[in-house]
Computed example of a mutant assay.
Amino acid sequence: MKTPDYARFVQDCIAADTLDDHKLNEDQLFGVYLSWCGLLGQTPGPCESFWAAMSRLGVHERRGNDHRYIRSGLRMTGPAALDYILASQPSLV
């Protein structure tokens, strides 16, 4: 089993955004990661490895008002983002 390249995931799927209203919560970030792995035919790495890699790569978190972790100033982008959005919002199809 090949371990996913987390740096490539961030490069391919995550973009910095200066607008305050752009935020990713932990479910969205992990969901787009799973979509990215699926599109590349890779087996996702363990959750612990993913979150440790995100921290090392500077994708920091903070708690929001609803006590879910959010990554502010980030947005998802690319084909994996589209795949994730369509999979999580079937009413859009």
Rank of each mutant, 00 (worst) to 15 (best):
L57E: 01
A81D: 07
N25D: 15
R8C: 09
C37H: 10
A7I: 02
Q42P: 10
A87K: 13
F50W: 03
G58S: 01
L34G: 05
D66L: 13
S35Y: 05
D66E: 15
Y69H: 14
A15F: 08
A53K: 12
L57I: 00
V59Y: 00
W51R: 12
G64H: 06
D27L: 14
P46R: 10
R63F: 11
P4C: 13
V10H: 00
Q28E: 15
L40F: 03
C37I: 14
Q11G: 04
G58A: 03
V59P: 01
A81R: 11
Q89C: 06
D21P: 03
G38Q: 15
Y69I: 09
A15T: 03
L40H: 10
L40K: 10
L40M: 07
G41P: 12
T43C: 12
S88Q: 13
R63I: 06
P4M: 12
T18F: 07
F50E: 10
Y33I: 08
L34D: 02
F50D: 07
G31H: 10
L29F: 09
G78Y: 11
F50T: 06
G38K: 10
L74T: 04
E61S: 14
F9Q: 14
N25Q: 03
A80K: 10
P44A: 05
C13K: 13
W51G: 08
C13T: 07
L74I: 02
D5H: 11
T18H: 12
P90W: 01
P4H: 14
T18D: 11
L40C: 04
L29N: 07
L29T: 01
D17I: 06
T18K: 14
N65L: 14
H67F: 09
D20C: 04
S72M: 02
G78R: 11
Q11Y: 07
T43P: 07
G45D: 03
S55G: 00
G45R: 02
Q42T: 09
S91K: 14
K2H: 13
Q42G: 05
M54L: 13
F30N: 03
W51A: 05
E26F: 09
A16T: 04
H60Y: 00
G64I: 04
T77K: 03
C37E: 15
D66R: 14
V10T: 07
K23W: 06
T3W: 04
R8M: 06
H60N: 01
K23A: 12
Y33K: 06
